[in-house]
Design a protein around this nucleic acid. Structure first.
Lengths: 199, 199
DNA sequence: ACCTGAACACCGTTCAAGT
DNA sequence: ACCTGAACACCGTTCAAGT
């Protein structure tokens, strides 16, 4: 059960690589592996030893952020009705994405790679929880799943700097409305509105 | 007014480059410039002479497809009510994107580059026409613009092969519903539903 | 066991030399 | 006026040699 002890120099290098990567991630969008190795003061090989793939590195860089997002979902659900919880959670995602666009790319790629598999990753689970709560109260359309939402959130990646405060909010609102179950009027409808137009 | 005649060999090279690029585009997602030059039987410099940027090349490769999409918008509006026209147009975009993902990337990048500017490109104009028609009948939310829609359509780029027929349709439906103006019940509402949850 | 950094591969881009 | 392709730059990845 005890994790195989690493040599202390290895442990230190690992930390330095992560620190360097974190710095680069806030600055520019794409991190250059060699540059990070250099900034961390280690050889390129050392970087590869600790993080065999670029994704492995990114996953660790964003670990804390992803964890925070995942943890927020049940908290929000405990305090708010499902739609409201979902709305707040989406807002939170946008805030993270604004500073570190990679948070989102990391989540997306995780989901993408697990297409065939069963798990959709922790972020996917968080979204599923939010959606399920809404479905249970017939406030979220029953056919939407976590991957739908994550795919749609991909728009954040293409946002320009100046648009963050205005457009991001509006588009999140469009997504949220699209996920809503039709408000039931006098007589319950059998098919969703979109079905009538061919979707 | 007469366009400055190109030398016939230049004209021919141009065509061959485009042909080669078109072939590569259907096969793989990212086209390698040197490879295309080689496949076209021209030097790399020739490729750059005709298409100074990668985008310039892609724009021409997808020209016909983009034109078709743009032309479809007014046609659909003439034959269908706005929402229905929009729904059909979105479906058409998805069909194109399925075969040539680049169609969409081309449209996106065009819009992206013109952020500060006035024009949002022909595709943007097509979407605007569809949205405006819907807004005029209070069927589309008044605050949505073409760039919102194009950003959301970006999800098509991240779709996996197997998802095209099922998920694509559903997500397009979500977008469409999100763009709808709230169906006016007995009493008109002052604020959109999403506004009540913080967006 | 882990690290280093030279070396290779790959691809985009330029430019001197050709026709 | 246009073309060619060697050459350079850049970045990811590997691996022989070191400690």
């Amino acid at each position: 059960m005890t994790p195989p002890r690493r040599r202390s120099d290895a442990e230190q290098n690992r930390a330095r690589i992560l620190d360097a990567a974190r710095e680069y991630v806030v600055a520019s969008n794409d991190l250059k592996l060699n540059e990070i190795a250099k900034a961390a003061g280690v050889g390129q090989g050392t970087l590869y030893r600790h993080f065999p793939t670029r994704e492995a590195l990114l996953a660790e860089v964003y670990q804390a952020d992803v964890d925070a997002l995942v943890a927020a979902a049940p908290d929000l659900l405990a305090e708010h009705p499902p739609i409201e919880a979902l709305a707040r959670w989406l807002k939170k995602v946008a805030e993270y994405a604004k500073v570190k666009r990679g948070v989102f790319a990391a989540a997306t790629s995780a989901v993408r790679s697990d297409l065939a598999g069963h798990s959709i990753g922790p972020i996917g689970d968080a979204v599923t929880a939010l959606l399920d709560a809404g479905k249970a109260q017939s406030q979220i359309r029953g056919d939407a799943d976590a991957r739908d939402v994550i795919l749609l959130l991909g728009f954040l990646t293409n946002l320009d700097e100046a648009e963050w405060d205005t457009r991001a909010q509006r588009v999140l609102g469009i997504i949220l409305d699209g996920l809503r179950e039709e408000a039931k009027p006098q007589r319950a409808r059998t098919r969703r509105a979109a079905s009538r137009t061919g979707f």
